[in-house]
Design a protein around this nucleic acid. Structure first.
Lengths: 333, 333
DNA sequence: TTTAATTTTGGAAACGATTCCAAGGAGGCG
DNA sequence: CGCCTCCTTGGAATCGTTTCCAAAATTAAA
């Protein structure tokens, strides 16, 4: 691998001059420009970003933490984040936690060692850890769709409480009184205060619906989880069976619908299903999915804006796109 | 940010000793170990990976190039690649080309500047470029699911020709004589020789089926593309309309089915649909999708194995998992 | 032509880690 | 007690870039 000083030697100039030429930092005489250029082509020179990052004390890399990139919601979100960050010349390093707090810790540590200029957390499993780590990251960290109670961090948050409430209300208005709830997180241990779960609990309480632990399902993430959930529901005694279920993930909802249909339940007539995210295939499900749409694009824009603003790379946080959540009514409820 | 020499100073030892301690490289006396450890905790030291990478002339980073991570097939593939690479202590940098040759060039260049130890190409748009770049990358490049005619590169390849042929044959056996074809690539310009397209053309020829450019659709990638394709098909005069369509992507297939149903066509009775990949939601489609399953896990394992072997990080290429493609017969054909 | 002002240039120092080498220290053996 | 061996240690050199500073070259002014 050719280095800058080899280029300098072959071109018969000093290293400083080559560097200046490469970065268009200062004027370099036309003659030397040509010499340098030919040397570069001759030796197939490629700058070593690592060295330059070390010297510059900045990498132009941003870390993004998601729970699982094969979750279409995160895929879309990552896509949008990347697009946005590229516009500002940043590169993105994505890491998946797979909902493992230990992996989360490890990856945050790795990102720090890699000297990323900032981190966007689109999924946090262990907010204690976060509180512990946050000070050392300071302003280069943005929470997207997550909130930390322990520590004040730049945060992009949507009103999931309200959206959940509205969705439940929609079900309630249609006469549902026995509503089940599926979440990706734990229950009841951690994150009890997470806004969606809280909204569910509050809603039930406010409307005098029984809160039955048998109707609350935790750690539900995938299509397969949804299928298994369907099996569980279908095995419940008819009088215990919910007439509707609110799922925090479209994936789970689709798997669920599939399994319910396989067991000859009708959706939404026997059991209504509401999902969350409005993932791309939601409207292509066996029963087009009624779901809460997350404004992925705006979320990404705001998060990046926020981050770059905190990094001093951008002046105006300016735009404040609509971060509203919207219930998309299709056929499943 | 604390550095290793600050640690050394606070602990009252030399930098070399700290480094040795950190890397468990040599024995360090118990007393100094304790001093160093306390200094580390006191100063919140985090090693600077950039510096160490510069010195070591190796980053332990592997680049992965895909066309679009929100394509569930690539998401799964990336997932598997990452899992596998983590096992060997590598980190993964993923980049999306969005099928843009220019982006491909740019990203490959960036990866090189970032000094990645290797690259796995799961999608290549411009194989001329590749031929041009490959020599400078030498052995640290693996083609996954792609082939380059111009240059010999380590390659993990499946028999897509055969799988396509088999799928078409399945349709043929069911009496279909007018079979449409949808691909993600271009047609007929580049990649004419790509094995799936070639198999289609050869199959038609071998069985005396007309090859009608009106039945061949290029640049089909997403659910939306599939929908639009459905509209196009439904607008064809009945005698021109295909009775079956083979799509190179499940996403397109699902969008297509959805739109066909919306236009009151029955799948598979009026039009049969075969997809490709067996993406996670394929069996949850409105009509469970008949599709060619790609062995994502094995593909990732073999690619990583191949790469690490070439890098000399691993001795035995050993395992040769089954890279067979399998037609999964469900309801759509 | 001389002097001053300006532009261009070369190269040393720095970024933070690792590794090599020489030297210091501990312990064993006679 | 002295000598040899082996283990532990400190610190200089190195990786490839950028930046700063002083010197050289060029241009402008007198």
């Amino acid at each position: 691998m050719a280095t800058i000083s080899e280029i300098a030697k072959t071109a018969g100039v000093g290293v400083g001059t080559v560097s200046r030429y490469l970065n268009h930092r200062d004027t370099v005489s036309a003659a030397k420009q040509k010499q340098i250029q030919t040397a570069i082509e001759q030796l197939h020179y490629t700058p070593n970003a690592i060295a330059s990052q070390l010297r510059a004390q900045s990498t132009n890399n941003i870390g993004v933490l998601v729970s699982r990139i094969s979750n279409p919601f995160f895929a879309q979100l990552f896509d949008a984040l990347e697009r946005e960050l590229h516009r500002y010349g940043f590169q993105v390093m994505v890491m998946q936690t797979h909902d493992d707090p230990e992996a989360e810790r490890r990856f945050l540590d790795q990102l720090k060692q890699q000297q990323v200029d900032g981190v966007i957390l689109a999924s946090v499993e262990n907010s204690d850890l976060l509180a512990q780590l946050a000070p050392t990251y300071a302003k280069q960290m943005v929470l997207l769709n997550e909130e930390s109670l322990q520590v004040a961090l730049p945060t992009v948050s949507l009103n999931h409480y309200q959206a959940t409430w509205d969705a439940l209300n929609y079900l309630y208005d249609q006469g549902h009184r026995r509503i089940s709830y599926a979440t990706g997180g734990n229950y009841p241990s951690t994150h009890h205060g997470r806004s969606r779960t809280q909204a569910y609990l509050d809603f039930c309480q406010a409307h005098g619906l029984i809160i039955d632990d048998q109707l609350i399902f935790a750690q539900q993430h995938t299509l397969t989880d949804g299928q298994q959930l369907g099996t569980k529901l279908s095995q419940l005694a008819p009088n215990l069976r919910p007439t509707a279920i609110f799922s925090n993930s479209d994936e789970v909802a689709v798997g669920l619908i599939n399994q319910l249909q396989a067991q000859h339940f009708r959706v939404p007539d026997d059991i209504a299903v509401v999902g969350y995210d409005d993932q791309p295939f939601a409207k292509f499900a066996p029963v087009p999915l009624t779901t809460v749409r997350q404004p992925v694009l705006s979320m990404a824009q705001v998060a990046v804006d926020q981050l770059l603003h905190n990094l001093g790379k951008i002046n105006t946080p300016a735009l404040q796109p609509d971060l509203g959540l919207q219930l998309i009514i299709r056929k499943s409820a």
